[in-house]
Write a protein that binds this DNA or RNA. Structure first.
Lengths: 137, 137
DNA sequence: TCTTGAACCTCTAGCCACTAGAGCAACTAG
DNA sequence: CTAGTTGCTCTAGTGGCTAGAGGTTCAAGA
């Protein structure tokens, strides 16, 4: 049996965040000690690790809730889990594409500043005048 | 003189967002019509385009406020604007690196699912068991 | 000139995924 | 037994908007 702090240390999830996940229905309400403190077993530890991992991968609370629901029905076809993972992959790829465009833009802006004072600073000019941009964003 | 809706159409910034920027001090309180409606001139239009552009590049409201303050003092050295742009570039690059790791991870998870049912679904297993991951994240 | 409907106003509350803090109770090491 | 850490609940704040209520003003057509 782990206290909430123990669970926090083992999973790297902060204590208030664990309580938040419980509130959001990702973790079931755990047993309590006589003094009303949460006591977690191994299944809760594993589920929290699952949640942590999924959050690190960028899944929303809602997606995670869906996955948890699905994992409670091991006999169902797993097309839905696949779909959730693929959607997430698509979203991540799109974010990468957009960030790479930003990177190029910022590179140009940040390295081309040869002015001495704000008055002739390329950063300010580039931000003011979209026409100085290469790509579209 | 532009109405707020006009400004919105010209810059692609939504009407409530323009009011929000005013509230946040990025836009100065504009003139008003007799009936208390906002009336913007060309300088406001340009500043809003500046803000829009900077937001698109991922700068925070706070960074933008700093840049606006700086642009009001054209005689100062522009090291600060440079620093803000470079910091932003660094942040973007870091996000890209992290997202690429996620992409690889999700690729593996989403494409390796050969199971038929949730019970033997790789997605669920991979999320449960961090040890199945290649990299560290 | 009048009317109608779109656009505007302010104000408050909600979104996501936490995070911080107040004020109090329970546990644990010495 | 006591001191200090950890736990509890509850409320409110974060960033960058977005939505809605309830009311006012503007502009185009009749």
């Amino acid at each position: 049996m782990h206290s909430i702090g123990d669970l926090s240390r083992r999973t790297g999830v902060k204590v208030p965040t664990i309580r938040y996940y419980e509130q959001m229905g990702l973790l079931e309400a755990p047993e309590r000690s006589e003094g009303n403190q949460r006591r977690f077993g191994k299944p809760e530890l594993e589920r929290l690790a699952f949640i942590r991992h999924a959050r690190d991968l960028g899944l929303t609370i809602d997606s995670i809730r869906q996955l948890i629901d699905l994992s409670g029905h091991p006999d169902r076809p797993c097309g839905d889990t696949d779909r959730i993972a693929k959607e997430q992959l698509g979203a991540v790829r799109e974010r990468i594409v957009r960030l790479r465009r930003l990177e190029k833009e910022l590179e140009r802006i940040a390295t081309c500043c040869t002015g001495e004072t704000v008055g002739d600073c390329y950063v300010i000019r580039a931000l003011s005048d979209h026409a100085l941009c290469d790509g579209d964003h």
